[in-house]
Simulated assay, not measured.
Amino acid sequence: MQPTHAEVARTLAAGNLPATAHIACRPGPHPVRHVTDAQGRILLLSPSDGALAAALRPAPDTGDTALVLDIADVPPVAGAPSLGRVWVAGWATPLAGEEARQATLDYADTDPATDLLDVGTSQVLHRVDVAEVRYERNGVLVDVDPDEYAEATPDPLHRMEFDLIADLADHHVEEMAGYVRRRLGPAARPGDEPRVVRLDRYGFLVRIGARLARLSFPRPVTDRHDLAHLLHPVLCHRCAHRAA
């Protein structure tokens, strides 16, 4: 099992990676702070008197402003392949009143930033209603259906991927190497030292010399606790034989 294009796009857009906004008919681009809500809509947080808020100010005869958000993956460790890049296009609307209060709560679910308390005074939230999603990886560009993007969920391990891989490298090298060799069977060459370089809800990506191998979990994991439960037979010395 592997994540779909829509799932990767939602993961990249979730708010864990740097992003820039290209705003129609305005100078730029602008670095932005953002998250996505449960429907995949982009929420932008910025100073109400800043350059981004000024660039997003709608024309007098409109209520929104067209923009494209550009988000590129940052691999968690050296030797890890990139998940690619996503462009999310849509219309940004400044929020006020009850909409701003609800969006503040939605933003805090991903990033409980202290300046959310200043939304409505020194800070402003814009919501981007998504019209188009494009995803690129290894030179291949695909259009992601906006409805599929909205229905997908970000990977629950992406925000903590670096910490999880570092923990495996620091404390479970032998157990993981043995597990990988058992899974690969004859494909594992003598002297190869397997190293986990990516991790998502569906499995591991392991680098073995110049090669990459993907090892799938029996089922998608839901969170860090679920991952620990799933990996316990692999990482526990007393239970290692069960992972064979």
Rank of each mutant, 00 (worst) to 15 (best):
G185M: 14
R159D: 13
L105S: 13
D170R: 12
V88M: 02
A150E: 03
L105P: 00
G178E: 03
T121L: 15
D163Q: 02
A78S: 12
L67M: 02
V180A: 02
R159F: 12
L117M: 13
L168R: 00
L141S: 09
V180N: 01
E99N: 15
A150H: 03
A113Q: 03
L168V: 00
D73V: 14
V124D: 05
D155L: 07
V86N: 05
V88Q: 04
A103L: 10
V119Q: 00
L105H: 09
A169K: 06
A177C: 09
A72K: 05
G185Y: 09
R127K: 05
D170S: 10
A166S: 06
D70Y: 14
E148M: 09
D70L: 12
L157A: 09
A166H: 05
R137T: 09
I71M: 00
E175A: 15
D115W: 14
G120F: 15
V119K: 08
D70T: 02
P94A: 14
A108H: 04
E174K: 11
Q102M: 05
T104K: 07
L125A: 06
D155E: 08
Y149A: 08
A80L: 06
G97K: 15
P154D: 06
L168T: 01
Y135C: 03
V74N: 08
D70A: 11
E148H: 14
P76A: 08
E99K: 12
E151N: 11
L67T: 01
G185P: 02
L116I: 06
L164P: 03
R183S: 08
A131S: 10
P154V: 05
W91H: 15
D147H: 13
T153K: 04
E174F: 04
E148A: 15
